[in-house]
Amino acid sequence: PQPGYLGREDVRNCSTNPPHLPVTAANTTIQLAALRQWMQAWNLTAYIVPDTDAHMSEYIGKHDERRAWISGFTGSAGTAVVTMGKAAVWTDSRYWTQADRQMDCNWELKKEVSISSIVTWILAEVPAGGHVGFDPFLLSVDSWENYNLEFQDSNRRLVSVPTNLVDLAWGSDRPPMPSQPIYALPKEFTGSTWQEKVSTVRSYMKNHAMAPTGLLLSALDETAWLFNLRSGDIPYNPFFYSYTLLTDSSIRLFVNKSRFSLETLQYLNTSCSSPMCVQLEDYSQVRDSVKAYASGNVTILIGLSYTTYGLYEVIPKEKLVTQEYSPVMLMKAVKNSREQALLKASHIRELPFFSPTSKMEAEGQELVTMIYSSLYLSAPSMVTGQSWGRWGLERQMENESFSSGPSFETISASGLNAALAHYSPTKDLHRKLSSDEMYLVDSGGQYWDGTTDITRTVHWGTPTAFQKVRKAKVDSLGSIQWSRSNLFSLSGRMVEAFARRALWEVGLNYGHGTGHGIGNFLCVHEWPVGFQSNNIAMAKGMFTSIEPGYYQDGEFGIRLEDVALVVEAKTKHPGAYLTFEVVSFVPYDRNLIDVSLLSPEQLQYLNQYYQTIREKVGPELQRRQLLEEFAWLEQHTQPLSA
């Protein structure tokens, strides 16, 4: 079916006179004028505004939302470029409609994400001899190298401007840096002590072919993981702004010291200077301190993907040891048995958040209103999702002491809104639930033992045959085993085709990745585990989400997401193959399963999964006296028959 765009009022239309702007669009004229003044002062003809912070975070704090402030577009991914006469945002298909709802006609929307497409546009807009500015603390070394390569021989100069021009334009309206306490995780929620982790990293450095004397950690989850420390600097992410410089004889932690309690300072051994003592230095001193360390007889290991050009440029090239990801990033990706147990335990608690949606399915539309009103407190009427933070509220109210709120803004969408992979309702833009439509909810929690992320799609009426996608999901999980032989070192990229196969067979696809790693009370998207070309090979002990979907523009959206652990497969000849063990325990909507599409093996897999859900989650629901949820579980995990 063709998307029904004609006459839509929820998105901008810049080709009419006057242009049509929805109420959700931001007026960015003043912001752009302010930025252009600063560009003029710095003699720049174009300025690049990336979507990240100085740690290459995927999700960022309020004071780092520069791209959102200048353009109005709030999606998590997308680069803006401003010239003296034009402005454009590049983003991927998850956010195209959102960008058309949020941006005014000052902005062009570019439906691509590669650096080469950005540079092609800049070269067309910036005359020869022009200067293109960027903040060196907002580009990774990798990204800078790509931009630099693209600009070579172009007669335009890429200029590193250490003062951020958007910050200057933003002025006093820019939110301040967070300052809440940084705390140590209790022992029972960690895989090993920080001292054990530091020793392991030092052994890695010692045995490295280049034997670096120092390791610089820039990603926020690297430092949080290494020291078993957490805070809440970024919404939904328990991190704190920091860097670590770990050497063979010292540990330097760059952070705002006033955020530690006396107890945490003792935990870190900050009152000594031996190799197992943590020396605290101010967060803002990192560049100078790395520069000073690099002046000695040293070599420094950095991960190119998460270190900014701003730090890279102060280390002499002959003293650099580089690899794509730091050893901490690689160690964190493989969970030890204790971390595996913790992450699994966190997923067992998820079912109650998903069962109400299925109550609606069973009990009809009128009751939906009632259930929503009673369950989600502030629900004024029958609208989709968590507008005003209802799902989030529910998670915050969890009385388990180790619950720490949601792990991302809940995606809750019905009908055509669900065709936007990352739609979240707002006061201005929401939709009444209907039994004739599909409803998608993607929600996750931050618990002290693990981060969760599950998506389910339901239909409360009669879905069409076109809307049933069960087969693709089963294929991506149950039937797949892959060689773990070093000869092939099979990456997720090669396994991913199985997840898309059922869609590809009929000429369909989905425009986002198939999965991502997930942390122990860390990132909900914990890279570099996943199914993409820049992800590392899957290995035993890694966790990944598996989330195929399908999005029919202007009509509906489907996504089914589970988290799975990579384990050894039980094959006739054991030891050489890996497979997935699903650790998300929420049944799928039976309404969306066409049993006739499933092979006997797929059916057997699904019924085995349902049996596991009963065994794992049933006792937990009974322990917590969640009897309604328990009855729902029993009903929705009845074995399916061919």
């Binding site: 590669s114 996750g444 820049n534």
Partner: peptide, 24 residues
């Protein structure tokens, strides 16, 4: 939560590396 797909540039790099490692 759905992840972004990587850009073509990095895919080329990965494929080139894969081919190099297979042929070495």
């Amino acid at each position: 939560m759905a992840p972004i797909t990587t850009s073509l540039t990095s895919m080329w790099v990965a494929f080139t590396l894969a081919i190099l490692s297979w042929s070495s």
